[in-house]
Amino acid sequence: MLTIARGELIQIFRNRLVLVTALVLPAALSAFFITKHDVFTEMGSLGYVATLALFFVAGIGLYTTSVTTLASRRQNLFLKRLRSTAAGDAGILGGLLLPITVLSVVQIAVILGALAAVAGTPADPLLLVAAVVSVVAMMLALGLATAGLTNSPEHAQVTTLPVSVGVLAVAGWIGATGTGDLTLLKRLLPGGSATELVLNAWNGGKPLTDSLVLFGPTVAWVVVAVALAARLFRWEPRR
């Protein structure tokens, strides 16, 4: 897995388009949110700024790059090449997705760290870490499922839109309005309960048990996405 991951890391830094999508764009947008945190705090809360930054990295950097990477490696038969070796399927997927996952997690840590330094620390850092992990897992699983529907890197520009725009919209909506109304709907939407979790972790003021329940919908999305990926994912281009 690490051998494949090393090759992927090299490719990320050699491919300008991937580099911009995976690193520069989310980092630039997050930097904007941090510098304008007082404006966004007025719209929602400081947790709202953290949520937007998290979902920009996870929704654009991690999710879109994962789908594009898998579609590209399938289209040029690199997946088939890897399956011609002794590497197992889990190792291949792990190796392909590990670099962008690590880069995204590091980005999130740096961005949220910067936000904490500039605007104030989160009320429950451990809960925040758990929330970030759950979001990363959900976006990776959704990426695997979407890759099954995506024929090429160009096609990924279309197939990733519903989820990437969707989770950002959900995060923006819930971050600004909370879950006081339409609670069930908001929590069941992809990223909905995770957004609430990040808000609780950063802003505080909610019992821990209330927050723990919020992991349920996110875990459910992971399960659904993995089940879809198991059905949809292909290792070779369609004949």
Binding site: T3, I4, T85, A86
Partner: peptide
Amino acid sequence: GIMLQESGFSPDLTVRETVGLVGRLTE
């Protein structure tokens, strides 16, 4: 060892990196 009918390589890796990568994966 398998030589496929159609090549499947990453265009951004060098020749040396590619042989090293696939070679290591053969164990």
